[in-house]
Amino acid sequence: MEESGHYYTVYYTSLAAGFDEKLAYRHAVLAQMPDEVAWFDAAHIHILYCKTPASRALSSTQSSASGGGQSIWERSRNFVSDQIDRVTKPVREGLNDRETNLGGASQSIPNDWRHSVEYNLHALAPNNASNLVRSSDFQRKKTTEQLDAEHPASLKFGMLLHRLGDSYSHSRIENSKEMYTVSTRDTRWDCVPVKGLKDDNLGHGTHLTFPDNPLLRQGIFFLYLFNLYEVMQRKVRQYPNLRRNPATTLSFEELKARYQKMFNDTLFSPSSYFKDPSLKEQLMEAIRRDCQSTLGVQMESYRPERFQTQTLQQFLDQHRELNDLNIGEQKLKSTLESMRPELTHADQMTEFFQSMTPDQLKAWQQAEAAKAGINLNNINMNNLWPGR
């Protein structure tokens, strides 16, 4: 999601729910951080890992049957990869100086780190995952559960706010019940686009940045806003000592009405999305003005990303207000790992049921009933297995 969704909407919603100004600002900064620090930014990592260069991924699989020769298949793959390298060269050259880990050291990107960032942090599900894991409802539910379990001033809470936004914006444009997906395989070849074959390993790359724009997906945005507001309001009730005092607050209906007005006041149309880059700033400026006039709070401003992503240290140098969190490489890595949605026993059973055809399910039900000595003739199966 763009800055208006991650930074400003988190900021405004935190204030609207009643949080202290400094904590609301922390929420906004941490929610924006994953799109600012190079080794947390999904697009940056995907480009570097999957397209730098494509031929490197193929060299390790090349065989030499006799005299170092290559098969027709290998030669054709190398030709395609060379074309990919040529097309992506300008992008790669602009990013190579940022190929550093969280500590700032030059390092190639490990595949497990790429996958953790894309899934744990940006909610881009594995393309080989079950239907349940790839569903947007599952990703939103699991992220909300984790937020409810965290202290609102913690690093993990702030990073989960980013994931919550992406669990909405990274749902597919043509089917918002499903998440965009990425490949988990340890090969760059599996990450690059192959026109006409598949796009399930590219995240929302095939739809460019359209899915991240709140103005383009207002229905999805308001679902996100409701979820975010409910989380913030529960936390304010749980931690009344973190309230703003005195505090002007908004109900969800009031907050939604404010956003609807801001959306309507922004001179926007889908066709103008790429033609007029000032539209993003118009919306952010509208949020700042509205927060000032409605809540009496002047927000710390944030400008759209204009430059390359930065190292962790560069980001922390700009945000000294995070010093008390003692953010370091190991803490960030462990926090990221703990954000991975865990499947409960009930989730596993749901996956199990979803994996069966109707005939397979019927056979399983009969087998389980027989073990328990139950006669199924006059029993409603839906009452026995309501999860199906």
Rank of each mutant, 00 (worst) to 15 (best):
Gly328Cys: 13
Glu342Phe: 00
Ser293Glu: 15
Ser334Asp: 15
Ser293Tyr: 04
Asp276Lys: 06
Gln298Gly: 06
Asp324His: 12
Thr357Gly: 06
Leu332Lys: 01
Ser334Ile: 07
Thr350His: 06
Glu285Pro: 00
Gln318Asn: 12
Gln282Ile: 03
Glu337Arg: 09
Glu285Gln: 14
His319Cys: 06
Ser301Thr: 12
Pro358Leu: 06
Gln330Met: 09
Glu337Trp: 03
Met339Leu: 12
Arg340Gln: 14
Glu337Pro: 02
Met284Trp: 02
Asp324Glu: 15
Gly328Trp: 02
Arg340Trp: 01
Gln308Tyr: 02
Met339Cys: 13
Leu312Tyr: 02
Gln282Arg: 12
Leu316Asp: 15
Ala286Gly: 07
Phe353Glu: 10
Gln314Val: 07
Gln318Thr: 11
Gly328Thr: 13
Ile327Lys: 07
Phe353Met: 11
Ala286Phe: 02
Ile287Cys: 05
Gly296His: 05
Arg306Ser: 12
Glu285Arg: 08
Leu325Asp: 11
Glu342Lys: 12
Thr344Pro: 02
Pro304Ile: 13
Ser278Tyr: 03
Ser301Phe: 04
Gln330Phe: 01
Glu305Val: 05
Glu337Thr: 14
Ala346Thr: 12
Leu295Met: 12
Thr309Gln: 11
Glu342Met: 04
Ala346Asp: 12
Ile287Thr: 14
Lys280Glu: 15
Asp347Ile: 01
Leu283Asp: 01
Gln348Ala: 08
Glu329Met: 07
Leu325Ser: 07
Gln330Ser: 15
Thr357Phe: 01
Glu329Val: 09
Gln310Asp: 09
Ile327Thr: 10
Asp359Leu: 10
Thr335Phe: 00
Glu300Asn: 10
Ser334Val: 08
Met349Arg: 15
Glu321Met: 08
Met349Thr: 15
Thr344Leu: 08
Gln282Asp: 15
Ser301Pro: 12
His319Gln: 09
Ile327Arg: 07
Ser278His: 05
Thr350Phe: 03
Gln308Val: 11
Asp359Arg: 12
